[in-house]
Design a binder for these strands. Structure first.
Lengths: 340, 340
DNA sequence: CTGAAAGCGCTTACAG
DNA sequence: CTGAAAGCGCTTACAG
């Protein structure tokens, strides 16, 4: 704990606390001489304003909260890194909490952050979350909230997303363009918007290119793990559906699938082409390297904070503003797991 | 922001703020009737004490800071997860900061946390950190600090570590036991204690089993990346040192090496046995699966917080205590990359 | 240009 | 059992 107070500075200098305070904050109505004296002493004493007192007075803590489904995850940890770095630049610190993909926990974490009086909240929803009363509660409390990646369409707040549907469409189209005729999809869970959108993009591409949509070629990955990739890869072979291409919801699952196909002697991309999603660094390390959709996590984190920061300032200046939806670009990274 | 205050509760109930405060905190000198009335009203109004005021009064914020070298990293993100979960159980929130393996940044982050008046700090040092004035500064300020994983021997504070030397010794011994005669080591950077200790464990095992230590078989990975694994794997082959076993500082590098060996047609473990370190989940996914040392990140995080919590309470109760070094068990996970 | 005063919302030692 | 008072350390509107 810091122990030098404004009081002490004022006393040693024989001035009032108010003047000392104003001097440090460069108020225009303090003489240059006084400012210099105060600043110098503050420096030598290594004075730092007590943040607890400042928070109480200013009603803000320069702290924001972030809730993500899971921290041990390449994409989310990248987002968090982006958030933390950007926040630090603006003098904000970040409290991180995890929902563990559970609605109940997510609700609890929201409450913890609210009880802490964080200045704002950044959230990526849990797979489990199907109602949004807890989110709406935050918005009613006038605590700025920005969603990223896993969002809810029906909630009115700013959102930072990628165009999952377009990205999935392009990935599927690429499979079609390179000759695939029967294309499977390993999709994510049923609730999250991005897993829905990726599925819809896949379906739309099939439609547009006159490939019949076959529901039996869609496999649902509830946990989106490496193991699920292995399991469904094997199942797909056993199902004998003559699949020649797969668009997979996320790289981790795709890498599981590749590993299993390698073990089974299924040739990639000769027998089956594969496209993943997220551009995890392992996707360029696996053999064959994985064609995938680049999902800019770090950038998403930065932009999510920037948007929150803007809203924070609007509120401070009592300026009206409307929620904004920011869509980040994605690109298809073509590697060895698809034909040319 | 919450808007119901104690004042309001006291007013509506026609009692004083002090009594209301004491009622909520179950002070023994408040009548049951009053307690009941206050608590009920507090509940219906959804009263939450303003944390800023509480912080200022109690001089603690129930917030701790954590500094790690890099968040986008399987081991560190696991540790953070352990810290956050354990902290939450005890009513603490966690501010996370990254040093980016830079001493300068680490020093800055420490200052940010100190200026924020966090109750305590958990830190894993940057590779760059060779002097410890910033850490000692924290200790002098009486802010409890616990180091984990990447620690400094010369600083007197509690530390949560694994026995890197023993773990490395056992891994190397396993290579020797399974017939390896010329064992290389891909080590980490020169400064970090754990990379030093792993190297020393490797060396000690060679000594104990009468294998001559050959410095030219030690390759230094400064960044500990997948790519370095590939590069040194190739270099090792080109160097024609007839190496038949490698103990590698961390799984990511080992997986890079395996990938390169696979590409070069080097057979694992027939030609070269490999042991990694950390038991990252990819180590059981790669082909061949990687023998590795299990390094319990999540557990380390939990225990680091528990220790900090204990010190926090000792300080609150003005109880003396000495720093404690807690060593977690590791185990060798034998998989396909080594012989039997 | 400077300072006295009020107040942010709580906690707690003290008086009654 | 209850309440008045002091105080945590600041900030800022106001008076001079």
């Amino acid at each position: 704990m810091n122990t030098v107070t404004l009081q002490e500075i004022a006393n040693t200098l024989g001035i009032s606390v108010s003047t000392a305070s104003k001097a440090l904050k460069d108020y225009p109505d303090v003489s240059k001489k006084t400012k210099a004296r105060v600043k110098e002493l503050a420096k030598t004493l290594n004075y730092k304003p007590n943040p607890f007192a400042v928070n109480l007075r200013t009603k803000q803590s320069k702290t924001i909260g972030v809730i993500i489904p899971e921290l041990v995850h390449h994409f989310f940890s990248s987002v968090i890194k982006g958030i933390i770095n950007q926040a630090e630049k603006k003098g904000y610190l970040v409290i991180t909490l995890q929902s563990n993909e559970s609605y109940t926990l997510e609700k609890k974490q929201i409450q913890l952050l609210l009880d802490k009086n964080v200045d704002g909240i950044l959230i990526s929803l849990a797979n489990d979350t199907a109602v949004f009363d807890h989110i709406k509660h935050v918005i009613e409390k006038k605590t700025p909230l920005v969603m990223f990646d896993k969002i809810a369409k029906v909630v009115s707040c700013s959102k930072i997303i990628i165009n999952d549907r377009a990205a999935a469409y392009n990935a599927t189209k690429y499979l079609i363009d390179t000759g695939c005729k029967r294309i499977a999809h390993f999709r994510g869970p049923l609730l999250p918007q991005n897993s829905i959108d990726r599925f819809l993009g896949y379906k739309k591409a099939l439609d547009d290119f006159n490939i019949e949509y076959d529901p039996s070629l869609v496999y649902i990955c509830n946990d989106m793990t490496f193991e699920e990739g292995e399991i469904f890869a094997e199942k797909l072979i056993n199902d004998r559906k003559n699949v020649d291409g797969i668009f997979i919801n996320t790289d981790l699952v795709a890498i599981g699938a590749i590993t299993k196909f390698n073990a089974l002697g299924v040739k990639i991309p000769e027998d089956i082409s594969i496209i993943g999603f997220s551009n995890w660094f392992m996707s360029s390390a696996i053999t064959p390297t994985l064609t995938t959709v680049d999902q800019p996590g770090y950038k998403m984190g930065k932009i999510a904070f920037k948007r929150l920061y803007k809203e924070l300032n609007h509120i401070k200046n009592k300026k009206e503003f409307s929620p904004k939806i920011i869509e980040l670009d994605t690109s298809l990274i073509v590697r060895e797991s698809t034909k040319t």
